[in-house]
Design a protein around this nucleic acid. Structure first.
Lengths: 109, 109
DNA sequence: TAACGATATGCATATATATGAATATTATTC
DNA sequence: GAATAATATTCATATATATGCATATCGTTA
């Protein structure tokens, strides 16, 4: 009963459902980076970064460009960044709300 | 090396990483619905819908309102809808691109 | 062509997530 | 207060995903 489109939509969301991959996207916000640069920026092992990049590549969230022995990665569509930005805003609003609720609960005691 | 925020961000994305839940969100686009209405709209089992709603509730993607024996669900933040809309656009653009690529590949043969 | 640097892949294991079926909970009505 | 309608939860099992480690691939330079 779920449509093909919803299935694909969910797949993209799942692709973003890893903190490491979110960090990768953030690192790529202001321009392309090589795997080495990403590895250093995130402080994870190279093999692990490559695995996450493979997932992002498969779902076409990122695109690549080869230059000699380096591979430059970039976010394939700026709308993906926008969507992430919105999600982060939702998150921050939730956290604020949470604080308010905590305060209220504390006052009540 | 992944921040708390990224972890939460990823968690929200994972929450949207299921076709059933995407369908639920779409069904809630133009207003709240009861579990029964959602069950009928999506054609899944009630228990299953409830499970998905529980996931969405836990991550505060949806909010509820009780009225008698019914529980009305709504999307908690319109930005979530916006983000989904963006993602769907990305998806449609990808599909279009895919078609172009297919055409090119076909012509080449 | 050997050695090296950059990146990707395969495999094993651990962990998370989804689903169906059964059942519990809660509010309402008789 | 028993029966019923609406919704939630629990449990068992199946399936997917993540991670570390080892190793392969590919382009470059000596």
């Amino acid at each position: 009963m779920t449509t093909r489109i919803s299935e694909l939509h969910a797949e993209i969301c799942r692709t973003l459902g890893s903190a490491a991959r979110i960090d990768i996207l953030n690192a790529l916000r202001d321009g392309e980076k090589t795997v080495g640069e990403l590895t250093e920026a995130l402080g994870l092992r190279q093999a692990n970064i490559s695995q996450h990049l493979a997932v992002l590549r498969q779902r076409r969230v990122v695109a690549t460009r080869k230059e000699g022995t380096n591979i430059y990665y970039r976010v394939s569509n700026p709308k993906i960044i926008q969507a992430c930005e919105l999600m982060r805003q939702v998150l921050l609003e939730q956290l604020k709300e949470g604080e308010v609720l905590t305060k209220l609960a504390t006052r009540k005691r």
